[in-house]
């Protein structure tokens, strides 16, 4: 499979979950392993361009496919506008839910460049944050939508 533009080939047990493959085999520990029951969304990454809760997929299902994780957000040493938004608006405290939130936020803005507050809340409705009360996450996503080129814009 291709992860953040790099091709990886590994032999895995069929029962290995995608999140464990990404974290333990490829040592990309940005994606978090949370509730294990597809409720919390800490493990959200993109499979073929679509957000997926990777605790609920087998690594084998991603065979030959394209994955993007939170490590693949920054470009040329520059943080993605969603990452900048979370910094600017205090979108995180402990940071555990953040990688999943960032991947969903990037997808949302790619598909709806000017999301309403309701659309942002709907988009992250399958993800749990226990620190921020979501207000700052929503603000952060909106910041990113308003600054498509990051702080420079």
């Amino acid at each position: 499979m291709t992860v953040n533009g790099t091709e990886y080939t590994r032999d895995v047990e069929p029962r290995m979950l995608l999140i464990h493959f990404i974290r333990d085999e490829l040592e990309l520990t940005g994606s978090h392993w949370g509730c294990d029951t597809s409720n919390c969304g800490a493990c959200v990454l993109w499979l073929d361009g679509t957000p997926l809760k990777s605790c609920t997929a087998l690594a084998a299902m991603a065979n030959g496919r394209d994955i993007r994780t939170v490590e693949g957000l920054e470009r040329g040493g520059e943080l993605d506008p969603v990452q900048q938004g979370f910094i600017a608006c205090h979108g995180l405290q402990c940071g555990f839910c953040t990688p999943g939130m960032l991947m969903t936020a990037r997808w949302l803005i790619d598909h709806h460049p000017h999301p309403t507050e309701a659309e942002i809340r709907e988009a992250i409705s399958g993800q749990i944050c226990r620190c921020t009360g979501y207000e700052n996450i929503v603000r952060s996503v909106r910041w990113a939508a308003e600054h498509p080129s990051g702080a420079a814009s």
Partner: peptide, 9 residues
Amino acid sequence: IADPIVRNW
């Protein structure tokens, strides 16, 4: 039904 991310798959 479920949430947007689950509905993706």
